[in-house]
Each structure stands twice: as structure tokens, then as C-alpha cells.
Write a protein that binds this DNA or RNA. Structure first.
Length: 857
RNA sequence: GCGAAGGUGGCGGAAUCGGCAGACGCGCUAGGUUUAGGACCUAGUGGGCUAUUGCCCGUGUGGGUUCGAGUCCCACCCUUCGCACCA
């Protein structure tokens, strides 16, 4: 044993091994390998600003798992890249007068530095950056393929437009209906834009969720809700006073006899026609202003449901195809233009929304479904939305409503007035952005040939390099816009929209396999070897869009025979966010934790601060920077604390105080191992037979810990894995203090301790591993196994209960732990038991082997 | 409003095929060590009563099932997240 143990100098240690791993190529992956492949993937980041300890969670989890699986003998691919296009880069560029690419590259360099500091190792040979022309060339290629298959099309759609800035705004740039820059009221403008027909895949995207056993249920639920499938009937209503029909979608065709009015969304095409034909000027003006006002109100608020129902009567009527009656057509603010046909038949008796509206405007309420057969409720206080029996429905009376659904549907179909259909909430994917910093949509507008795709061989359509001062996107750059038509060679204009960045990220996981390939989007053979991704990990905020778009693109690629799998991500894990205390003064805003005065008071005014837990963000001044933390404690401490802090799927609170405990643990590991390094310079065999009781117990705990940590890592239970290793360390100290000295035992136990610690805290483990005489990276060592026999105890302690309450403990040899007769005898001999049991009848004697006995009296 | 997850010490959290609640860590208390502080080491730490052995209570609330419930069932309260006029 060494007399003086060297201090744990994490700074020196961590510096040493970063270069070593890089030089050794420890984490390079051979993609030609086809056996034992494991594709682990973290969602790639948007490189903006600098990372804080909250960002670290995702990557620390990934690095820990990748190292673990590598030691288990898997050929692990754990790549990283950057989702580099997007608005913040463009804004930063406008503010600073530089290229968005410059800003992005700086950030990427920062991110890489941070990964390195954390000891998070990637095979950078496989890196992808979505703003690299070598990447977005294939994003554009993908667009062309979709266009070829008629899955990319142009249509009119509203955009947010700021008349003051003369520019289109993204949704997040609109604050309360106003431009975030100049506070001008935002206008809605109709523009021709590009869409992907994701709705063609709606059913498939829904059905295949059932096969994703490795996905969390709540994510699948969110996707199901988002897709929003519902079955119903599309019904045609004749108009009373004009040509044409009014189409509506309903899930309750059985209630058609109760349809007492129609309601149109203000955007419905019929609305304009009707208003134009209104003769009374007052009335026309009234309708106009209602429509205008309702449209003006922020769409999201309208869809949000917190508005009172309002509407106006158009003066026109439709004919109920069931009753033949004329029913009024209203324009109503609660009808959504984007769902169904933007018009509904209203059945106030059996739909609460229609009921509220009818009450407000005195529209008749006709009950057509009664809870009991032939027994209508009469006066309704609220809509009856349950199934029941038909009344007031002509020939369909007394049928149960489910049967009526089918029969009325069929009847309408025969009359040519209805069709069974399926409706989805899912809309086609609007991919156009009127922005500079994205992948240009590779299309050309020719006055003679129309809209023409850029030939594949002309890709990429590169972003022009320009002085970056404007904010109008590509349309303002003449040398980009002006081109020639690939078909006729005449003068033509380029499409100036760029693609939504979700397009970039919908296929990046495929490109890692063929990063840098200039001939094709990827090598299908290798992609089929490696994908689907075995384990995907990222934030739950991407539960819907990113994952749905990726699934869509994968299904499309499967349809054009480029891949042979239908789902990109076999297993999915969504990790929670890290929040941190945030202090806010009512007068002076957010205050940095280190500036807070005694008693949580504001340093400016001394007022009591409001303390809340908030996700880390610069604006709330509550970010914890990895740099300061690592300077004080080292990267290993940050890593293990991040994993120890709580269950990875849950949101957790960062505590600067608790970090100390993790650091203390590493110091204990360090001291423990360093003092026994001498053992590794000599031969010492472990012979389990030679151990005393205390030493045997250590050996048992070593084996148990290896088992627990292995299983915990496989189950994403990092917090309990870390606590097991802490327990093992405590056990070492216990044995040593009790005089345990078996050299074979200590040597082998310490070896295993270092091995199982290494995925969590790779720097300290690598250092100790090398000091133990190994000359290759610990990540290339084999993950230790455990000996089932060593897990068994010789003696075991049982609780002795009387009527379910623990009254005594009994230590017995393990081999009689399930022998009822012997246990009964021994238990009854205990003073504390006999006192209570003597003279009473034992009604029952229950044995839970190895655990407890319960005497019922 | 609908849906999901969850309520466990002073704090973060363990333990759910029903079987000794509170592992591990923080904090706190006492002692040791140190020129001092920090760091480190040892012991203790759910609450109440008790000199101690020990007794009673205890996992959001109230019921229930069971020899035995944090865990299962019923009702309710609260928190967080997601969805939210989808016809």
C-alpha cells in the first residue's frame, strides 16, 4: 500500500486523455462491418449560441451508452452533426452584417470544443452539416424525387406579412399579431407555396405506430392525435336559392334529421359569393365586417377555443336532404377552415358546440337521438352526445343510433347525397420559407414551360454569397433569380423559397452512413445494413413534427426502393429537461443567482425576489455554464452528476450544491484505487475459498453491482446505476476498515470497479486503467460479467412478523430459508416472538423465502 | 374540458410479478483531523413517546381487498405535461 496517496488532479488527467482517444481512433466506426452493428443516435443540435449543462444531458447519456455498448462487444455507430440552417443564424447575420454561414461555423466550432471538453467522443469522419452544399444538394435531390412522384406541389396558402419591414414572418416572429421587430400589425397574405403530400401517407403513418414497440406510449399517442383520423360521411346539401351544393363532413350522419342550420368558416369560398349578392347595403356591410373581424383575430387564438361563439345569419338557406326542410346558413367563428370542408351541418341537440350557438341565436333544437327507445327527453339542458335510439327521424325511428349511422349513410349514398369518408387532422406539409438561410427549392419558373425542375446534374442550387444586410430572402438577389429554362433555354426565374429546416433533418440519419458521398444520396446497401436506427434519443419537444416527417420520408424512400425498411427509428427514448433556480425581481427583471443578495433579495432594490424553477435560458439568467463547473470539479464530475441527478426521462432540477457529492465520490474512487496500484505490479490470483466473511461479502457486492449496472444501463436507469457504484465504493471502504487484505480479491474487485465506472466517467477510469498497467483504451476492454454463484449469500436474515408487523429478525443459513418447519421452530424460539405468541393459537404461518415469515395469531 | 404521468424525510430521489419504506446523494448534528478555513474521516439523522431495550404513527385524502398495501380496487384533492371548438 502506498504511504502517500496522490491527489485527484482532474484537470491534468482530463487533458491527457482527450488527445489519446483521438490519436488511437478509439471511437471510429467501421461501416463495412455487418455483424453486431448497433446504431445509436442522438438528435443533432441546432448550433446556436453556447451550450449549457442542460444541453449536456442528451450527449452525456449517448456517450455513456455508446462506451458501454462498445465494451459489450458491439460495433457501435454514434455519429453527430449539425442542423445548421434556420432563422436565428439569419437574424444574427443581419444584426452583425456577416454571412449566416460564418456565424454558424463559429458556433459549430464552439460546440465541438464543448463535446471534447465533456469527453463526448464522435467519429467526426461521418459528420453532416445541413447547410453544407454537399448535404443540401441531396436535400434538393429528395425534393425532386418527391416532385417526380407528385408528392410535391404548389398551392396558395396564407403567410404572415409585415408591411413595414416588407417581409414575410415566421410564426415565432409574430407576437400577439404584431411584428416582433417593429410592432406593426401583421397582415395575412396569400402566396403560392410548396407542399409535401404527407397526407397521402396519413393512414400508413397511423397504422405503423402499432408496430413501434420501442417507442414511449405517450409519443405514439401524440402522433395519433396529431394525425387525427376520424370516420364519417361527406354530405351534400343543396342550396335553396342558388346553384351548387354545400359539402360538409360529419361523424354523426345518424343525426341528420336534427340538423337545423349550417355554419361556414369565414374563409369558406361560398361566403364571398353570398355577401356579393346581398342587396341590402347595411346587411352586406354587417356581414363583411364580421368576416373581416373574425379573420383578423389571430388564427391560433381562434383555434384555441377560448373565444365565445359568434356568428351572423347570411340570409340564405340550404335544404336538409333528409327532411327536405330549408335551414339557415350562418357564418360562425368556431368553424375551422382547415378541417374537413370548412363548413358543417349543425345538430344542436347532439353537439355541445352547436347547442351553445343555437341557444345564443335562438335557432331551433331538434332532438333525434333519445337515451331510451321511444322516449325522447323533450326539453334539453345540454347536448346529448351519447349513442341512443332514433326519434323524429322518419323511417329510421327506433333504430339504435349505431345502426342508423350505417343505414342513413347508405341511404344518402343511394340518393347521391353522401359518401362514407375518412378525414384527417393532419395537413399537407408546407415546406416553403421565404428566407435566405435554407436549402433552395430546386425549381425554375419559365414563362413558356411553366414550373420546371432543375435537372439533377445541375444540383446543388447553391445559395448565393451576398453582403448580408437585407431580410427579404432570395427574391431580392437578382443574380440568383435570373436564370434560363432547362427545357427551352429561354429567360426564366428561379424559385426563391427555401425549404423548412425540418426537411433537412428528416433524412440526416441516413446520410451519416455515406457522409461526403458525391455520387448519391447514400449507399443503399450500407444503409440497409445499419438502419433502422437501433436507439434514438432526444427531447420530447420533437415528439410530433421531426419524428413524423422522418417517418414520412423513410416511407417514401421505401416506396421508391431506396431503403428496405419502413420505420427509421426502432427504439426511441425522450429525455427530460434540466431546470435551474431562476430569480426575478418585479422591478428589475431576472437576476443571476450569484448576484442575489442574502435572503433572496434583489441587489438593486432589496425587494424579495420570486424564486422559480425554469428551464435554463440566457434570458432568465439561470444557465449553468460547463466551463465554470469543469474548472472547479472536472468533466467527469459534471458527467456523473448529470446522470445521477434523476430519472433521465423526467425533468430534473440542477443543484449546484449536490454536484459536490458527485465530486466527493470520484475523489473516494481515486483514493481507493491509487492506494492499491502496487497490486497490479504483481501476480495475485483470486481464490474465493480463501476469503473471510467480510471479504466474501465484498466479492458478492462486486458481482451484484456489475449485474445491477449492466441491467440499469440497458434500461436507461443511469441514476440507480451510479448509486450502485457508490454503494460498491462504500463497501470497499468498509472491508478495508475491517482489515480485509486479500490481494487477489482487492485486485480483481478494483479492476471491475474501474471497468464499470468507465462509461460514466471515462477520464478518471482511463487514467486508473493505464496506471494499472494496461496500454490500450479502457473502452476497448471487455465489459465484466458476473458470477451467479457469487451472488448467493451463505446466511440470510429474515424478518419475523406477527400479524404483518416486524417484531424480530432471524439469521439462518441460506439453504433453509424456504424450509417452513425449520423456520417455524427457530422463529418461535425467539424471546420477542414467544412473548407474544405463547398461549395463542397460530392460525397461519407464511413463508416468503429469503425474505420474511409472518405468524398470524 | 379531454388525455397521460405523478404526489414518498428538510431537499433530489430509491423501492411497484403486494413481502423488513426511505437505498444512494445533498443538507444537518456530534466527534476526530487541521495553525485556521476548506477538504477529509467516523457516527447519527422520517415523526412522536421512552434513560435504554422498546412502543405508537407514517408514502396526497377517505374507503376497500389481503396474513401483509407506497405498490392492487373505488371515490376525491393537488401538481406537471400534452391536446384543446377537428364537426
Amino acid at each position: 500500500m502506498k504511504e502517500v496517496s496522490e491527489d485527484y488532479n482532474f484537470e491534468e488527467i482530463e487533458d491527457r486523455w482527450r488527445d489519446y482517444w483521438e490519436e488511437e481512433g478509439t471511437f471510429k466506426t467501421d461501416l463495412e462491418e455487418t455483424e453486431n452493428n448497433f446504431y445509436y443516435l442522438n438528435m443533432f443540435p441546432y448550433p446556436s449560441g453556447t451550450m449549457h449543462v442542460g444541453h449536456g444531458r442528451n450527449y452525456i447519456i449517448g456517450d455513456t451508452l455508446a462506451r458501454f455498448m462498445q465494451m459489450k462487444g458491439l460495433n457501435v455507430l454514434n455519429p453527430m452533426g449539425f442542423d445548421a440552417f434556420g432563422l436565428p443564424a439569419e437574424n444574427a447575420a443581419i444584426e452583425r452584417g456577416i454571412q449566416p454561414g460564418e456565424w454558424t461555423q463559429e458556433n459549430i466550432a464552439d460546440f465541438k470544443k464543448q463535446f471534447r471538453q465533456w469527453g463526448i467522443e464522435y467519429d467526426w469522419d461521418k459528420e453532416v452539416q445541413t447547410h453544407d452544399p454537399g448535404y443540401y444538394r441531396w436535400t434538393q435531390w429528395l425534393f425532386l424525387k418527391l416532385f417526380e412522384e407528385d408528392l410535391a406541389y404548389r398551392d396558395e396558402s396564407p403567410v404572415n406579412f409585415c408591411p413595414h419591414c416588407d417581409t414575410v414572418l415566421a410564426n415565432e416572429q409574430v407576437i400577439n399579431g404584431r411584428c416582433e421587430r417593429c410592432d406593426t400589425e401583421v397582415e395575412e397574405k396569400q402566396l403560392e407555396q410548396w407542399f409535401f403530400s404527407i397526407t397521402d401517407y396519413a393512414q400508413e403513418l397511423l397504422d405503423d405506430l402499432d408496430d413501434l414497440d420501442g417507442w414511449p406510449d405517450h409519443v405514439k399517442k401524440m402522433q395519433r392525435d396529431w394525425i387525427g383520423r376520424s370516420e364519417g360521411v361527406e354530405i351534400k346539401f343543396n342550396l335553396a336559392d342558388r346553384q351548387g351544393e354545400l359539402d360538409v363532413f360529419t361523424t354523426r350522419p345518424d343525426t341528420i334529421y336534427g340538423a337545423t342550420y349550417m355554419a361556414l368558416a369565414p374563409e369558406h369560398p361560398l361566403v364571398e359569393d353570398i355577401i356579393d349578392d346581398v342587396e341590402d347595403e347595411d346587411q352586406r356591410g354587417k356581414l363583411r365586417s364580421f368576416v373581416k373581424e373574425t379573420k383578423r383575430i389571430d388564427q391560433t387564438r381562434r383555434a384555441g377555443g377560448d373565444l365565445d361563439k359568434e356568428g351572423v345569419f347570411t340570409g340564405e338557406y340550404a335544404v336538409n336532404p333528409a327532411t327536405g326542410e330549408e335551414i339557415p346558413i350562418w357564418i360562425a367563428n368556431f368553424v375551422l377552415t382547415e378541417y374537413g370542408s370548412g363548413a358543417i351541418m349543425s345538430v344542436p341537440a347532439h353537439d355541445q358546440r352547436d347547442f351553445d350557438f343555437a341557444r345564443k341565436y335562438d335557432i331551433p333544437i331538434m332532438e333525434v337521438v333519445a337515451p331510451e327507445k321511444g322516449n325522447p327527453t323533450g326539453e334539453l339542458e345540454e347536448a346529448y352526445e351519447e349513442p341512443g335510439y332514433m326519434v323524429n327521424s322518419g323511417d329510421f325511428d327506433d333504430l339504435d343510433s349505431d345502426t342508423a349511422y350505417e343505414e342513413i349513410g347508405e341511404w344518402l349514398k343511394e340518393k347521391g347525397k353522401g359518401e362514407f369518408t375518412v378525414n384527417f387532422k393532419l395537413q399537407d406539409w408546407l415546406i416553403s420559407r421565404q428566407r435566405y438561410w435554407g436549402a433552395p427549392i430546386p425549381m425554375i419558373h419559365c414563362p413558356d414551360c411553366g414550373v420546371v425542375p432543375v435537372p439533377e446534374e445541375d444540383l446543388p442550387v447553391k445559395l448565393p454569397e451576398v453582403d448580408f444586410i437585407g431580410n427579404k430572402g432570395l427574391s431580392a438577389i437578382d443574380e440568383f433569380v435570373e436564370t434560363t429554362c432547362p427545357d427551352c433555354g429561354g429567360r426564366a426565374r428561379r424559385e426563391t423559397d427555401t425549404m423548412d429546416t425540418f426537411v433537412d433533418s428528416s433524412w440526416y440519419y441516413l446520410r451519416y452512413i455515406s457522409a461526403g458521398d458525391e455520387e448519391r444520396i447514400f449507399d443503399p446497401e450500407k444503409v440497409n445494413d445499419w438502419l433502422p436506427v437501433d436507439q434514438y434519443v432526444g427531447g420530447v419537444e420533437h415528439a410530433i413534427l421531426h419524428l413524423l416527417y422522418s417517418r414520412f420520408i423513410t416511407k417514401f424512400l421505401e416506396d421508391i426502393d431506396l431503403v428496405d425498411f419502413e420505420e427509421p427509428f426502432e427504439k426511441l427514448f425522450t429525455q427530460g429537461m434540466i431546470s435551474h433556480r431562476a430569480y426575478r425581481c418585479p422591478d428589475h427583471g431576472w437576476v443571476r443567482p450569484e448576484n442575489v443578495e442574502e435572503g433572496d433579495r434583489c441587489p438593486e432594490c432589496g425587494e424579495a425576489l420570486k424564486v422559480t424553477m425554469e428551464s435554463m435560458s440566457k434570458s432568465k439568467k439561470n444557465v449553468v455554464s460547463p466551463k465554470e463547473l469543469i474548472d472547479e470539479y472536472g468533466a467527469d464530475t459534471e458527467r456523473i452528476y448529470t446522470l445521477f441527478i434523476g430519472p433521465p426521462e423526467k425533468d430534473v432540477e440542477w443543484s449546484d450544491r449536490d454536484v459536490k457529492g458527485s465530486h466527493r465520490f470520484l475523489t473516494r474512487v481515486w483514493r481507493l484505487v491509487v492506494q492499491y496500484l502496487d497490486l497490479f505490479e504483481e501476480e495475485h490470483e483470486l481464490d474465493v475459498e480463501d476469503l473471510d466473511d467480510s471479504e466474501t461479502e465484498l466479492w458478492r457486492v462486486v458481482n451484484q453491482t456489475v449485474k445491477d449496472v449492466t441491467e440499469d444501463l440497458e434500461n436507461f436507469s443511469f441514476n440507480t446505476a451510479v448509486s450502485s457504484i457508490m454503494e460498491l465504493t462504500n463497501e470497499f471502504y468498509r472491508v478495508i476498515s475491517e482489515g480485509g487484505t486479500d490481494k487477489g480479491l482487492l485486485k480483481e474487485s478494483i479492476r471491475r470497479l474501474v471497468l464499470i465506472t468507465s462509461p460514466f466517467t471515462p477520464f478518471i477510469a482511463e487514467e486508473l486503467w493505464h496506471r494499472m498497467g494496461n496500454d490500450y483504451p479502457v473502452a476497448e476492454a471487455d465489459w465484466p460479467g458476473w458470477d451467479e454463484e457469487a451472488l448467493q449469500k451463505d446466511r440470510t436474515e429474515l424478518a419475523v412478523q406477527i400479524n404483518g408487523k416486524v417484531r424480530a429478525h432471524l439469521e439462518v443459513p441460506a439453504n433453509i430459508a424456504d424450509d417452513e418447519e425449520k423456520l417455524r421452530k427457530r422463529a418461535l424460539k425467539l424471546d420477542r416472538i414467544s412473548e407474544r405468541v405463547d398461549g395463542k393459537e397460530i392460525k397461519k404461518f407464511i413463508v416468503v423465502p429469503g425474505n420474511l415469515v409472518n405468524i398470524v395469531i
